[in-house]
Computed example of a mutant assay.
Amino acid sequence: MENFVDGNEATETADWEDVGEDKIPMVLAEMAKEGKDSIYILNSIRRIMKWSAKCPEVEMKMYRPKNIQWRSSVIVTAEGKLDVAFIFSPYKSCSFLLSAIRENGIIKMENQPMVYFGVPEEFFGHLEHEIISGEFTAAWSFVFNSYWLPPETAKKFKVDVPTGFTISRLDPSHASTVNSVWPYASASSLALVYDTILVNETAGLFEEKNSRLVSWILHVYYGLGMLYTEKEYRRRGYGTIMVKALSKRLAENGAEINLLAKEDNVEANSVFQKLGFQATGPVMVIQIQSRS
Rank of each mutant, 00 (worst) to 15 (best):
R234E: 04
S89V: 04
W182M: 05
S38G: 01
Q289F: 10
E17K: 05
L149Y: 00
E252W: 04
E2F: 12
R64E: 05
S133I: 01
K209M: 14
T166A: 09
E267C: 11
M26A: 15
R102G: 04
N265D: 07
N258G: 11
E121G: 12
R212P: 01
I288Y: 00
L275Q: 05
T280S: 05
M114F: 09
N8L: 14
S247W: 00
A268W: 01
A187S: 06
I101F: 08
I107C: 06
E30Y: 03
E152I: 05
D171A: 12
H174D: 08
I167Y: 01
E2W: 13
L42F: 02
A203R: 09
W140G: 02
H129C: 07
Y238S: 12
Q278F: 12
A245C: 02
N200V: 05
G164L: 09
W16G: 04
F86Q: 14
I167V: 05
L275P: 06
T196M: 02
A10W: 09
S99K: 10
G35M: 00
T240K: 11
G105Q: 01
V199G: 10
D22V: 15
N253G: 10
E12T: 14
F136K: 03
D37H: 13
P150Q: 07
I75W: 01
F96E: 00
G225Y: 03
S133M: 02
N265F: 03
G35Y: 02
V243D: 07
L213H: 11
S146F: 00
V115W: 00
S211Y: 14
E128R: 14
N265G: 10
L259F: 00
A29P: 13
A85D: 01
Q273W: 15
F124N: 01
F157K: 00
T229L: 04
F123E: 01
E21K: 08
T202P: 06
M284P: 00
F142P: 02
L192T: 14
S44I: 11
I107G: 06
T202M: 03
S52L: 03
V119G: 01
S89D: 01
E30V: 08
I45Y: 02
I217Q: 13
S52N: 06
F277M: 03
A53L: 08
V5Y: 10
L98V: 10
I48H: 13
A261V: 02
F86M: 15
K50T: 15
